[in-house]
Write a protein that binds this DNA or RNA. Structure first.
Lengths: 257, 257
DNA sequence: TTTTACTTTTGATCTGGGTCAAAGATTTTG
DNA sequence: CAAAATCTTTGACCCAGATCAAAAGTAAAA
């Protein structure tokens, strides 16, 4: 079993990994835990289950009661909000190992839609919340993940509020490239290559633009050699530094711990 | 001592409040805690201190090392991000009782600026983090608060990405009115009255607009009777429903637990 | 009370990105 | 494979909000 490198993607840093059944499972045993390991695994198995969704399927409707939390095992989903007149804004992108759900809340705040075929690892909410109370490290890990999401949301506020269309596209490409690289453990310095997981319309909804503007700006970045396109979706970034400049980002690329 | 009504504003729901020294103090004793009450209060006192700031003063610079967390006791502060060329985007508004800081992170991600004279109740970060480990409810409470902030940030993404200038202004006024009302425990149904805590420029930075557009749209809302202005800052909302319509919001006003 | 320094409003003009329209690509279906 | 349905690109035009400019409050300092 391959280990995911970034600790960002785990609810608890695994001290022993040999009991893990699901790679992106948000509950992991921890050596320091006072409870008996067997007990925990039993409880864990009891409340864990898998759900599969087809591309395009609504996973959760905003406002619905949500009786589970979980994490993406494979596939991609989007979080979005829609106004009555149909204007929609994507507020998050869920890639494998990302957490879904709001412990302590009864209702869903956003629509969650599967962009590709998708598998989720779910936990019934009530038992999960009980487990959070008895296993403090779960709450602490969730806090860290939520702080990461908050940082991402706030970074996106700068993109939405102050960047030009070209900078917005470059910012989105940079984020996808970065996440994709960390997921696939790419060689660091070569040109980055990936397939866009989103349609032009989905990108527009993420960026607060129209799909026509997205298309035009992608064409412009291609014309200017910032990106190389094969077909509509396959992207090569010959020079990540250049892309980040186009995105208007600091060259240092944010701060980690 | 008056009790703040909304549980949203406390790190732990107070079971006994007679030991609380600071109204917006993020650490509160809890009856279920296994540790001796005296011990906790002693530790608490040891790591707690107050800091005062003048209007306009930078509290935290983005990127700086931050060795404390805390909460606003009185006054108002803003969270903002700035690009190299000077474009800035506010990503949060801190009112009394709001939490500041990122347990587990060494660096500040945003500039924090005092908008008015301001007092903060601070805790040295290391001992606070240790306390989080020994008192699980603190992490759980922080998680709830962070989830609230995440919801707010994502709601703001919709405002920034998809709303018109008029809707943006109405949205901001609605948020300020709502927070102000919950803080002052106003009578529910009368017209809401408050003073704008922000300059036109700060509003522009929050909304992703220019200050001229902010001024024009406020004038327009005034002309159309949606708001009543006395002087530049004193606002009366004669009809909150009307304001929410102008903001393009669902009439139900979001979901709480 | 005048001076100096903001903050806010209002006007005139410009432009980036939206809107409307149509034609290519690409994929799916029959 | 042709037909239908999507997705994407490109063009022509328009408008909400930006930019530039100046005047009018307001408030702190002298």
């Amino acid at each position: 079993m391959t280990q995911i490198k970034s600790k960002k993607f785990m609810l608890l840093d695994p001290v022993q990994t040999d009991h893990i059944h699901c790679e992106s499972c948000p509950i992991r045993h921890r050596a320091v835990c006072a409870r008996c390991e067997a007990d925990e695994l039993e409880l864990l198995e009891e409340i864990k289950y898998y759900r599969s969704f087809e591309a395009g399927q609504h996973i959760i409707w905003s406002g619905d009661k949500m009786d589970f939390v979980g994490s993406v095992v494979s596939g991609i989903a989007t979080l979005s909000q829609t106004m009555e007149d149909g204007r929609t804004q994507m507020v998050g992108l869920l890639l494998p190992s990302d957490f879904v759900g709001r412990p302590g809340r009864s209702g869903a705040a956003y629509d969650v839609v599967a962009t590709t075929d998708l598998v989720m690892c779910c936990f019934r909410k009530k038992p999960f919340e009980k487990m959070m109370e008895t296993t403090p490290h779960i709450a602490q890990r969730l806090l860290q993940m939520t702080l990461d999401e908050l940082d991402a949301a706030r970074e996106w506020m700068l993109v939405l509020g102050r960047k030009t269309a070209r900078e917005k596209i470059a910012s989105l490409l940079a984020i996808i490239a970065r996440r994709d690289a960390s997921l696939h453990l790419n060689a660091k310095n070569g040109p980055l290559v990936f397939d866009l997981p989103l349609t032009r319309e989905a990108m527009a909804d993420y960026l607060g633009l129209t799909l026509e503007t997205v298309s035009r700006q992608i064409s412009a970045l291609k014309r200017d050699g910032v990106i190389v396109l094969e077909g509509k979706r396959h992207v090569t970034i010959p020079d990540m530094e250049r892309l980040l400049e186009e995105a208007g980002d600091d060259s240092d690329g944010g701060m980690l711990d």
